[in-house]
Amino acid sequence: MTLAASDPSDLSATPPPFPKPAVAAPAYPPAADPTEADYNRKTVEPQPNSGDFRSVVLPLLAQPEPVYYVLTARWEERVHREIRRTIIKKALTLTSSFQGQYLLLTLTTAAPTLRKPDPTPLEEIVLLLAALYQRLVLRITRTGQILELVNYEELLQSWAGIKQQLRARAGGGEPDTITAALLTAIEEQLRHPEQVLASLRYDYAYYFFFKNIYYQRFESNFRYGQAAEFPRFFAGTSLYFHERMTLALPTAPGRTSLSFRGELDEAQTDRAVVAWEVAAGLLPAQDPATRPLPDPAALAFAYAATYDVDAVTGWPLAIEARVNCCNPAGYAKEYDLTITRT
């Protein structure tokens, strides 16, 4: 069932009083952001439990001292016996402070490393473009919803330097077609701060790091559902899932553990377009007009994630996530993410 925000039984709509932190820190004001009701809305379904009843409400407290993470993202494409794998690893530093009823969050990312023996020129350019997002200052709600990119002007200044480097790669002349297309796309993206903020959805790490789990009551005898989208999982289409979250047994004292599983949203995901993308992966050199298409109904999809969260501050301690699509004809594409607090 879907609980309306005005339903008094919807515990996600009205968070309980904020717990007092163990150390002196500014308290959140009691007022909730007006967008929280829609953002927090979930379906709720009963599920059997082993008798070990648990109930949690995760806070999201300011972290004025730096918190460090290591993030590893892996994209893998398997075509019969051939494996094409790209692994990107980067270090992330997080600090946050209260600003009224919001958190002002600063994410600083070290230059990413690409673990691949023969990176393509395009991949090298993409690594260079990563410097655009090296420092992000975000305003977020107490439930983790990103509202605003605060340091937009700073990103524009960074882009000016990156453009010079890209043009230098072209020897000072006109950039090649791919580089020119990227320059045009980034220029368009940077026209408005809202567009820059929207572009973060294409890096799935932001989706998993800023999860909709805060100041909502979760109990072990229910599972909680919401929509999950993975934009442009393939070049021409996205994958959509019905996400179900359950409380898992804590892995250690002081932690809250959560488990997520996804079932493909058949209404949103275009299986025919995915089949076309799979055919392109299997037979990239063949004319698209004559390529045999796999049976869309035979495609299999999966999504799963696990979280270990600091029960006192609410910030992640460890995240593991995986999204994949496979075809019995010998093709599979997978995204794998690991985030670990160091």
Score class of each variant (00 low, 15 high):
Val309Trp: 05
Ala5Ile: 14
Trp75Tyr: 14
Gly171Asp: 05
Ala181Asn: 10
Thr342Ile: 10
Ala32Ile: 01
Gln63Gly: 04
Arg169Leu: 10
Pro21Tyr: 05
Thr306Ile: 11
Asp10His: 12
Thr2His: 11
Pro328Asn: 02
Ile88Val: 15
Tyr215Val: 00
Ala168Leu: 03
Arg232Lys: 12
Tyr202Lys: 07
Thr342Ser: 11
Thr184Gln: 15
Pro288Thr: 04
Leu264Phe: 09
Ala37Thr: 10
Ala298Leu: 11
Leu197Ala: 01
Ile162Lys: 04
Ala279Tyr: 11
Asp10Asn: 15
Arg232Cys: 07
Ala228Met: 12
Glu266Trp: 03
Leu247Gln: 08
Thr237Ala: 06
Asp52Pro: 00
Ile88Gly: 05
Leu182Ser: 02
Ala4Gly: 12
Ala130Gln: 13
Glu65Asp: 15
Ala302Gly: 15
Tyr102Ala: 11
Thr290Gly: 07
Ala252Ile: 01
Lys42Leu: 13
Leu103Val: 12
Thr120Met: 10
Arg232Asp: 08
Phe233Tyr: 11
Ser220Val: 03
Ile88Ala: 11
Pro175Val: 09
Asn40Val: 13
Lys89Gly: 14
Gln134Ala: 15
Leu183Arg: 09
Trp276Asn: 00
Arg167Trp: 02
Ile162Ser: 01
Thr108Phe: 03
Glu174Asn: 05
Thr106Gln: 15
Ala227Met: 11
Tyr204Pro: 00
Gly254Pro: 03
Pro26Val: 04
Gly173Ile: 02
Gly51Glu: 06
Gln134Asp: 13
Thr109Leu: 10
Lys211Glu: 04
Ala111Cys: 12
Gly236Ala: 08
Ser259Ile: 00
Gly281Lys: 03
Ala297Ser: 14
Pro294Met: 01
Leu11Val: 10
Arg169Ala: 06
Ala130Gly: 10
Pro284Glu: 01
Gly281Tyr: 07
Pro17Thr: 06
Leu127Trp: 07
Val70Cys: 08
Ala181Val: 04
Ile146Trp: 01
Trp75Ala: 14
Arg135His: 04
Ala4Cys: 04
Ser50Ile: 03
Tyr307Arg: 03
Pro316Ser: 03
Pro193Phe: 03
Pro294Leu: 01
Ala311Gly: 00
Gly51Ser: 07
Leu127Ala: 09
Asp7Glu: 12
Leu129Tyr: 04
Arg54Met: 14
Gln286Arg: 14
Val150Thr: 08
Arg74Asp: 06
Gly171Cys: 07
